[in-house]
């Protein structure tokens, strides 16, 4: 079975997030909980439905990933770009989301 993780966009700010092992939504794919068997995928899907129903996230999807040298990598380019951000140097001078939040 292909490994899978659960991803969505946070309701209030739309930022891409992934579900971690503690059941929280993290902004880093690398912190995501990886489902490696069917029961785990079912649990992910249930968690996604619940989080959507609870109005925490929107656009919830289970996506396929692989683990290469300990690094999680989505199989589809679309999901890699979602995880890593735009592949372009898009905002000269922008310090990143974290800097913005702690400023």
């Amino acid at each position: 079975m292909v490994d899978k993780v659960l991803t969505a966009n946070r309701l209030a700010d739309g930022i891409s997030v992934w579900l971690n092992a503690a059941g929280a939504w993290t902004e880093s794919l690398q912190d995501a909980f990886v489902a490696r068997h069917a029961e785990a995928v079912t649990a992910l899907e249930a968690a996604g439905k619940q989080a959507f129903a609870d109005n925490k996230v929107v656009d919830v999807n289970v996506i396929e990933i692989e683990e290469v040298d300990g690094v999680l990598r989505p199989l589809r380019l679309r999901e890699r770009i979602r995880a890593e951000g735009p592949s372009i140097d898009y905002a000269a001078g922008y310090k990143g989301l974290h800097a913005e939040q702690t400023a």
Partner: peptide, 11 residues
Amino acid sequence: MNGVYLQLHAY
């Protein structure tokens, strides 16, 4: 209707 979409990374 108010121009707000949801895209890959954000609204």
